[in-house]
Design a protein around this nucleic acid. Structure first.
Length: 257
DNA sequence: GCGACAG
DNA sequence: ATCTTGTCGC
């Protein structure tokens, strides 16, 4: 692969990202209350007609107590990476099921803000609206983005879904206690456990599923997230923007200092 | 009270 | 998520 690198001063950004204090909570009780309030801002409709470039984000946790978020811009037509970025932030919130956004959200936004490539939508490793209060990481982060966002989790946080058929592409609806659809259990790859995807913001259930299907390329995870996951591990514990190791495979690790 | 519980 | 060795399969 071949990557382009540039600038050292002010970072260009392909999209306006405003966290608006949406990730500031001192206690778990306040965090939950904030989620209840923010869920009203969600837009549950929309789709991406012909996605050209998609962003993928994943977060790795470092022993130093930092969150290392990796974001990539991936071109749908060619299946190639256009840009790779990493952001490292100190962790200031513990992992509590249902409150992941307060722990990883800031790092995710920081990494996305470093992308200079315009993207049509964002795929995030985590739950979207398939969450106890309807505001998983991808939905919460999605409130700060100008484009559609989808959450793709490797396991189920809540709700129930029938096991999808063995064939790749098979899916079943992920339902809440009242039988309303929250997301989709998707068999993205043969002999692999299903993915649990759900809309983040600015997209519908159908739109979210279509987007994920369009980003699958043989791996269990959609390609943008698969690459972000790999980049995160490669950069973990290392200086960002460091020169590549010949054997590492990556040309470099681009990110903020 | 007892389980379930993204990353 | 992270801690970790070998191992089965394409």
């Amino acid at each position: 692969m071949c990557l382009r690198r540039k600038r050292s001063g002010a970072q260009h950004r392909a999209m306006e990202i405003e966290d608006g204090g949406r990730f500031a909570a001192e206690t778990t009780a306040k965090a939950r209350a904030l989620q209840e309030r923010l869920r009203a801002e969600l837009v549950s409709r929309g789709s991406v007609r012909a996605p050209r470039v998609l962003a993928g984000v994943d977060v790795a946790i470092e022993a130093s107590g930092h969150a290392l978020a990796a974001a990539v811009a991936w071109e749908v037509a060619s299946g190639e990476l256009r840009e790779l970025r990493c952001a490292r932030l100190p962790l200031r919130f513990p992992y509590v099921p249902g409150l992941l956004a307060f722990r990883e959200g800031p790092a995710v936004l920081a990494a996305l803000a470093l992308l200079e490539t315009p993207v049509d939508a964002v795929l995030i490793d985590g739950a979207g609206v398939a969450h106890p209060r309807g505001l998983g990481l991808a939905a919460h982060v999605g409130l700060c983005l100008p484009v559609p966002c989808v959450g793709v989790a490797k396991s189920r946080l809540c709700g129930s879904a029938a096991e999808p058929a063995p064939e790749p592409g098979a899916w079943t609806p992920l339902l809440d206690a009242e039988g309303r659809r929250m997301g989709t259990a998707l068999r993205s790859r043969a002999r692999a456990g299903p993915l649990f995807l759900s809309p983040g913001n600015r997209i519908s259930q159908d739109g979210a599923l279509a987007l994920v299907l369009a980003a699958l390329r043989g791996h269990r995870l959609p390609e943008p997230i698969w690459h972000a996951d790999r980049l995160g591990r490669a950069a973990k514990g290392r200086a960002l923007d460091a020169k590549a190791t010949p054997s590492g495979g990556l040309a470099s690790i681009a990110g903020e200092g």
